[in-house]
Amino acid sequence: MSAAPLIEARDLVKTYIMGDEEVHALAGVTFTIPHGGYAAVIGPSGSGKSTLMNIIGGLDTPGGGALVINGADLGALDDAGLAGFRNRTIGFVFQSFNLLPRLTALENVELPMMYAGVAPAERRLRAGALLDRVGLGQRKTHRPTQLSGGQQQRVAIARALACRPALLLADEPTGALDTATTEEILRLFADLNAEGVTILIVTHEMDVARATHRIIEMRDGRIVADNPVPHHRAVPQGALT
């Protein structure tokens, strides 16, 4: 298990056809991320970062190539299998938080556990502990509209962690936040990574990218650079594949 990487992507292709024009959102992407990795994907707008994240998260399907995550071949999963994969293997954090506005912070965090079939009492307990963990112990019964952007994103992170995922995916998690709040979120990510959660984030900000251990740069649907961040040279072993 530990020998195999957590993410193994080979020749991933995604092509959109817009009228006569073909848009190669992904034009052959190959890389691996080891267990415990912490990497950032950067690149100009339209380079295919979100497309890649969505495919890794099981939300979208590639047009070609192979993708094995945590031992599961995503191409072979049916609807129920994919739902289980999104539920238990992946924790997704969105740029726009995507909390359900009618539910309290606690209920939002409970949501993935509901789909996992966790009993209500345990669900509540775990959601409470997660909110404590992200520093929102005092805001459990607040609704998203009663929380600041940074607080909402922390609720979203707690929700992403609810089913103890192997992989945390975050597409521009700090895109809507100010610098101070961004720092808080990054500290949280660093702590989580230190506890063994593999994290992959997409960002436009170099400061954010440099907080990770490895920077993957994309352009026109391809990986054009893939380098470890100097301070963390020793950590990601699979960095140079």
Binding site: L59, A80, A83, G84, R88, F92, N98, L100, Y115
Partner: peptide, 16 residues
Amino acid sequence: TREIGLRKALGARKAD
């Protein structure tokens, strides 16, 4: 629609 997309992203199956 957005809520449905989110629920699916969090692990809801078609049947759910």
